[in-house]
């Protein structure tokens, strides 16, 4: 039986600067790729996020993927969106995930289905992300289901995560929304990919003024960019992402673009570590998982505890 307490939570409590990354589950029923990635990544990261049908594209479930991570000796953070499941299904899956040894859950609303491969789907949104956070917390602390019914024994005791996007609008509301998530029960936060350092610092400044950095472990999100084309695409087409011209320019001028992307990412991590209140880094190397060790090493984050 798995430990009751999440390893990630223990590391934060010990004062470690945590490192997490992301594995996107496959669009098939094969788990060996997730296990291989886990084997490869586990000496370099403390936990691995498993996305929940990201961009609303059907993939192997985050809980299923989390079980593969566990089998390969890794620490999973399952992402759980409120797009596809109502409160009954969400709570049922929380019970199932915990029973299988998963200890970390990241609560989010999820990308709208119009971005995905089933655009005619009905979305659920019975709960929003903040209501899900509160539900997970109430299951653990008050030992009740969302309806108020008592969980007589074996309640799930998740370490609860949430996301924050300092680059979406309205900017002034972003810190308040983070505060709401923490009030609802979020214990760790992973931010959207940071490219606009100035805006992130302004965000952290406001967060510190409200004391939020002392109420939750804030992990800064980074993403190594593989090409100038990718940088331009994100700059133009991804809502809630800010990619400054300077980054696009650096990538365009680079002879070896992937190497430049890695270099930029390492520089960002080194800088982020100096910002008060940043307690870890979350590396989102989408479809480029194999680069994570090089980044972690380059950023001086080895050895992992």
């Amino acid at each position: 039986m798995a430990e009751e307490k999440s390893k990630l939570q223990s590391l934060f409590e010990q004062g470690e600067f945590a490192v997490t990354c992301e594995i996107g589950p496959p669009k098939n029923a094969q788990g060996d790729g997730i296990r291989k990635h886990t084997e490869h990544l586990k000496p370099f990261v403390d936990a691995v996020n498993l996305t929940d049908n990201q961009t609303a594209i059907v993939r192997l479930s985050s809980i299923g993927a989390g079980v593969h991570v566990l089998a390969a000796g890794g620490e999973p953070i399952i992402q759980m969106t409120t797009r596809d499941r109502n409160r009954i299904a969400l709570q049922s899956d929380l019970l199932g995930a915990y029973s299988l040894g998963v200890r970390n859950v990241l609560c989010l609303s999820g990308d709208h289905q119009t971005f995905g491969n089933h655009q005619e789907a009905k979305n659920v949104y019975d709960l929003d992300s903040i209501q899900l956070i509160k539900t997970v917390k109430d299951m653990r602390e008050a030992k009740v289901f969302q309806s108020g019914e008592v969980i007589k024994q074996g309640e799930p005791r998740f370490f609860i995560g949430a996301v924050a996007n300092p680059f979406a609008d309205p900017f002034e509301f972003r810190v308040l929304r983070l505060e709401k998530k923490i009030r609802a029960g979020a214990q760790f936060i992973q931010t959207q990919c940071i490219f606009d350092m100035e805006r992130f610092e302004a965000f952290m400044d406001l967060a510190r003024k409200r004391g939020l950095h002392q109420q939750a472990y804030i992990m800064a999100g980074v993403m190594p960019i593989k090409s100038a084309k990718a940088a331009k695409y994100m700059q133009k087409n991804v809502s809630g992402m800010l990619v400054p011209d300077g980054i696009v320019e650096k990538m365009s001028k680079a002879e070896d673009q992937p190497a430049e992307g890695v270099k930029l990412c390492i520089e960002q991590i080194k800088h982020l570590r100096t910002i008060p209140g940043v307690r870890g880094v979350h590396i989102m190397a989408v479809a480029w998982e194999e680069i994570v060790p090089e980044i972690v090493k380059g950023a001086g984050l080895l050895p992992r505890p």
Binding site: D111, H112, V163, A168, R177, S239, G240
Partner: peptide, 18 residues
């Protein structure tokens, strides 16, 4: 588009929905 009751999701930019 998501019937959120506690504030905007991360896809809100320049006043527009994702």
């Amino acid at each position: 588009a998501k019937s959120l009751l506690n504030g905007p999701c991360g896809g809100s930019q320049n006043g527009k929905c994702e």
